[in-house]
Structures are given as structure tokens and as C-alpha cells.
Design a protein around this nucleic acid. Structure first.
Length: 485
RNA sequence: GUCCCCAUCGUCUAGCCCGGUCCAGGACACCACCCUUUCACGGUGGAUACGGGGGUUCAAAUCCCCCUGGGGACGCCA
């Protein structure tokens, strides 16, 4: 029970637009721990309202990763519950209905502005050094004009009519009262022209309909919270409690990102990190157990957890300490766990099966398997004694080539051998590298040897995260050995 | 640029709310030594922090203000 007497209900609301993110696990952990501590419910809601980027495969990986970490939800898309469906793409009628309510009550309006116009407005504002935002062009549209445009079938969105004066306040449970001037708030889009809601509408409507009591989310949402508060008011609903967790950071203190850090939970799993070690480590980010205790289970964390103990400075996600923590967990494993981890995770049947077609022709005895294919089973490679830089190329050229490649790999939609081949060959041609220079260095960087199986198939099996990690790791190595410092 | 958030060792943090017990405690990483046929583990020790300036107070890491620094947001992404 919360202090208001209602049953605590919290949610994790990931967007299925890529590999499951370590930030999702981080926020999920604190939601989970808080819910369980208070005997409440932890809900998983899939926020797949971006029709361009949402992918079913991503959703499946998110579910799998959260389960792997032991953060099991009470209600969710795969198990249902009293407030379903738990996938926003299946709740669009509800959002449309609520957008209509706001339209009728005068809290929202239809906007027919084109993307081109919006971009132009933003550019002008940036040029003048102003804060960018919608210029409210359609807010003053007469009812007759709106009807005419609707009749003509012009696409439109529905925007929230922000108050033009006054302030919006809310209490962040970790920071106290926060205050925002209303005239600075943008007329946020609530319903997109494709009929799907934006985060702001869907989130508020769902949190209300799912009886969420505490919104525990990342700090990046603070500046959107006044918009949400205004939405709650417009609907005449009471607000939930707001808790904004500090953001996980890269080593340079920017918001954690895949460009600077492995962020995919699949990567950590693949890199041999134990779920309990990762969860424990995440529990140390912004929170501490007390009494100098660092090793604890989720159960123990739950017993001691209190938001008052949250440290608001953004914690740097340090792979080195995570690795140490993993080691301490590994050393405490019992025999059966040791065996099952190697069997089910490192040498999982699915992985071995994917390997068979590309490694078999290079084998004449099974004992060759481990030695030939070690790079399929490890994380970082040792580049110290490898000659990777092609003759006639400078380190800077290779760095540039790999830097471009890693960006392209990030954006590659389908991660399979054919797509990789098409994309990589196009890049090779574009920068006019000889096939041997390009492919051999890429092979060496990603596998650590020149006699590895076919490149594209190998990259496909290694997976996006591992390939990306090794390229970046090598780039760091090369840049490091290159400079005298 | 505008608005907002934040600020203890290189990093994660304890202490801060309820000023004195803090010449600031723990952990990772680092260095040295011990253990050891090697490596690792383990053990012992070391170096390293209250961003700056003003207040308030007998007393400030702890309270207040300013500065600086870092971060986030400013999308028909979440």
C-alpha cells in the first residue's frame, strides 16, 4: 500500500525500437523493487506507437531480457491482466476517444500544418536564437475553416492547447517541488496524423487506465512532466507521484549511448555477464545499500529500498566495476550453475546450431572447434600482436573507415549476411578501398584472425552488438597506440 | 540560445535532511608488498575527493546565495 492507501502500481514502458536497452533494465529494476517492497504490481507496457520504428522482434527481445534479469511483471502483453491490452498499438481507439474529449472540452485543437512548414518555423526560430516550438498557427483557426479542411481530407494532428500564462508545478518525489512557466510550454501533438498517439497522450491515458500510482522513469522526462500534469488536469484526473531517476552516463558523462558504450542487454548476456551481477550493479547506480555493502540480491535491495536514498548525480556506467562484480558472483557459483551457464548461455544449442554451417568445412576433428572459433565465444579481443593496418593505409584512414562502418552497422535494419554484404560492399566501393584491404582488416578486427569463416556470415552470427563493440574497441586500441600520450 | 536538473577520490558511493564524533568511510581501478613453480584468487599497505567565492554559526562536506562546471529537454521519437 502507498501512503495514500491505494495499492502501489508501477510500470516499465519500453519502446520496441531496437535492442533492449540497459537503461530500460535500470528503470525496470527500481520500479520492480519499489512495487514489490510495497506489495504492489509491476506492469510491463509496450509503447509501440511509432509505426516507423517499432518492431515485433524488438518487443520479444525486451521481454526475454527482462525475464533473464529476473524482473518478472505481473501484467503485460504476453500474460494479460485486468487493464489490457498492454501494447499501445492495440489501444488506439482509447487514445482517439480521449483526444476527442479534449477537443470537445476545448483543451485541444486540430492542426493542419505540414511537416515542411513546421521545419521552416523551427529553422527560423533557431536562426533568431529562440526556443523552438510550434507557433500555434492553427490554434486560432475558425470552426468553419477546420470543417472545410477536414472536408477536403487534409491530414492533421491534434495538439494540446497549453495555458499561456501562469505556472505548472508538480512534486518530484526525489527533488521536491518543480515549477515551470506555462508560456514556455509547446502545444504538444497528442494524436499524430496517422491516428496513433504520441508518448504524451498515450502515457497519461494508460497510466490512468492502468491505475498507475507512481511514475518512476528517467530524468530526461522532467521537462515533459508539466505537459503531462496539464493533461491530467484537462481530463480532471488526479496525478500519480513522480519520481525521476538519474540518467546512466557514458564515461564522458553524457547520457549513456550506443556510440560510446555497449547498451544492449543482449550484449551483456552474450559477454558472459550473470544477470544477478548486472542487476546488482544497476542497483548501485544512484542508490546504495548502506553499511558499505555492495553485493546484494534484488530481494535484499527490496527490503532496504527507499527513494530517499537515491543519489541524484548521474552515475557513470563503468564496465570495469561491472566486470569485477560479475567475477565475485562467478566465484560463488555452485557446480550445477557453472555447468548450466556454460551449457545454456555460452554454448547454447541455438548458437552452436547457427555456427555449424559456417565452421564445419574448416574442421576435420572436433577438437579443432574451440581453438578455431574462440572469437565466437568471447567479448573483447586482444589486438596487441595483430597486424591489422593494411599496407599503404594510415591509421587515420582505417579509423575513418571503421568509424563510418560502425555508423552504417548501427542503422542496418536487417542483421543478416545478405544485408550485411550489400551494405558493406557498397561502403567499400564508396570509399574506394581494395577488397583485400577492406575485408581483411574488418575480418581481423571482428575475429582477431585471418583464417576465420566467411565474413558476412560470421558477422551475422556474432550479432550487431558484438561486432559494434569489437570495432569500437579496436578503434580505441588503434587510436591509443597511435598517439604518444 | 532558452528552460530545467545536478555537483564528495579517476569511477560507483557513505556522510548532508536533524551542522561538531569527518585532518571525510567503503568499493572498483591503480601502485607496493605478502602468499605462490606461473597466472589468477586472496591478504596487507599506499596514493587520490568535499569545484570556487561569499555568507549564517563558537563550529559547515553538511544550511543560504552567487559563480563555475556537468547533464537533460526544446520532434507528427520515446
Amino acid at each position: 500500500m502507498s501512503d495514500t492507501g491505494k495499492k502501489v502500481r508501477v510500470r516499465i514502458a519500453p519502446s520496441p525500437t531496437g535492442d533492449p536497452h540497459v537503461g530500460t533494465a535500470y528503470i525496470a529494476l527500481f520500479n520492480y523493487v519499489f512495487a514489490k517492497k510495497h506489495g504492489g504490481d509491476f506492469i510491463l507496457r509496450i509503447e509501440d506507437t511509432d509505426q516507423v520504428r517499432a518492431r515485433a522482434s524488438s518487443e520479444a527481445m525486451i521481454l526475454e531480457s527482462l525475464r533473464w534479469l529476473g524482473l518478472e511483471w505481473d501484467e503485460g502483453p504476453d500474460k494479460g491482466g485486468p487493464c489490457g491490452p498492454y501494447r499501445q498499438s492495440e489501444r488506439t481507439a482509447l487514445y482517439r476517444e480521449h483526444a476527442e474529449i479534449l477537443l470537445k472540452s476545448g483543451h485541444a485543437y486540430r492542426c493542419f500544418c505540414t511537416n515542411e512548414r513546421l521545419t521552416e518555423v523551427r529553422n527560423q526560430q533557431r536562426l533568431q536564437g529562440l526556443t523552438t516550438g510550434y507557433d500555434r498557427h492553427c490554434r486560432a483557426l475558425k470552426a468553419s475553416d477546420v470543417d472545410a479542411k477536414l472536408g477536403a481530407g487534409i491530414p492533421h494532428v491534434i495538439r494540446l492547447k497549453m495555458p499561456t500564462d501562469g505556472v505548472t508545478k508538480f512534486v518530484d518525489e526525489l527533488r521536491g517541488e518543480l515549477e515551470f512557466e506555462n508560456h514556455r510550454l509547446d502545444d504538444q501533438v497528442l494524436l499524430k496524423s496517422d491516428g496513433y498517439p504520441t508518448y504524451h497522450l498515450a502515457n497519461v491515458v494508460d497510466d490512468r487506465h492502468m491505475a498507475i500510482t507512481h511514475v518512476i522513469r528517467a530524468e530526461e522526462w522532467i521537462s515533459s512532466t508539466p505537459k503531462h500534469v496539464i493533461l491530467y488536469k484537462a481530463f480532471g484526473w488526479p496525478e500519480p507521484k513522480w519520481c525521476h531517476m538519474p540518467l546512466l552516463r557514458n564515461a564522458d558523462r553524457s547520457k549513456i549511448s550506443k556510440r560510446k558504450n555497449p547498451v544492449s542487454l543482449s550484449y551483456y548476456r552474450r559477454a558472459g555477464i550473470l544477470p544477478e551481477a548486472l542487476v546488482n550493479f544497476l542497483g548501485l547506480m544512484g542508490w546504495s545499500f548502506g553499511n558499505d555493502v555492495e553485493i546484494f540480491t534484488v530481494q535484499q535491495m527490496m527490503e532496504k529500498f527507499d527513494f530517499k536514498g537515491i543519489n541524484l548525480g548521474g552515475p557513470v556506467f563503468d564496465l570495469v566495476k561491472l566486470t569485477w562484480m560479475n567475477q565475485t558472483y562467478m566465484h560463488k557459483m555452485d557446480d550445477s550453475r557453472f555447468v548450466s551457464f556454460l551449457r545454456d548461455e555460452v554454448f547454447s544449442p541455438a548458437y552452436l546450431k547457427a555456427l555449424k554451417p559456417i565452421v564445419l568445412e574448416r574442421m576435420s576433428r572436433f577438437e579443432q572447434f574451440v581453438d578455431n572459433n574462440a572469437f565466437f565465444f568471447c567479448g573483447a579481443l586482444d589486438y596487441r600482436n595483430l597486424e591489422i593496418l593494411p599496407k599503404g593505409k594510415t591509421a587515420d584512414e582505417l579509423l575513418l573507415m571503421l568509424g563510418q562502418l560502425v555508423e552504417l552497422l548501427d542503422e542496418l535494419y536487417d542483421w543478416d549476411a545478405a544485408s550485411l554484404q550489400k551494405m558493406i560492399e557498397a561502403h567499400k566501393d564508396e570509399i574506394k578501398w581494395k577488397p583485400k584491404d577492406y575485408f581483411l582488416s574488418l575480418r581481423m578486427v571482428t575475429t582477431g584472425r585471418k583464417d576465420s569463416p566467411p565474413l558476412f556470415e560470421t558477422l551475422a552470427v556474432l550479432g550487431r552488438e558484438m561486432v559494434r563493440f569489437r570495432i569500437r574497441d579496436y578503434m580505441n586500441h588503434l587510436a591509443g597506440t597511435n598517439s604518444p600520450a
